[in-house]
Design a protein around this nucleic acid. Structure first.
Length: 120
DNA sequence: CGTCTGACGCACG
DNA sequence: GCGTGCGCCAGAC
């Protein structure tokens, strides 16, 4: 039983990551979403931290993942230190027209893109 | 195997 | 609106 459930667990984890990346790729240019929103969207509302981990691993993913469009629920650029430099994430967002003030997305509630209704 | 650590979110004050 | 504490769960050591 151990081995089978272990493999199943492994597959579910892989599926989880794949779904996270799939959602992240759907975020429109110039819009942002949150880790928790992605987690809710794939049916694991308490896995927001895992979404963060998935974004951390997004570099090694073969496809391009716009991880800079994913921020925390307050619009804070909590992952900016993982883009090679502390300013990279902000510059990427600003290049898309998203204004940043004090590491926070300006007008976050309007720019927020909720994946749950859109994905269906 | 126990413990710590987070790119989180929520409740509480 | 902000700081603190806690639950969450996969990895690192």
């Amino acid at each position: 039983m151990a081995k089978i459930s272990w493999n199943r667990q492994k597959e579910e984890n892989k599926d989880f990551f794949s779904r996270v990346y799939e959602i992240a790729k759907l975020v429109p240019h110039g819009r942002v979403t949150s880790y928790g929103a992605i987690a809710r969207c794939i049916g694991s509302p308490q896995a927001a931290r895992m979404v963060g981990w998935a974004m951390n691993q997004a570099n090694s993913h073969p496809e391009f993942i716009p991880a800079h469009r994913v921020v925390n629920r307050t619009g804070l650029l909590s992952g900016k230190h993982h883009f090679g430099g502390p300013r990279v994430m902000q510059e990427l967002l600003e290049s898309e027209g998203v204004r940043i003030e004090d590491d926070r997305v300006v007008n976050f509630s309007s720019l927020f893109w909720d994946p749950s209704p859109e994905l269906i």
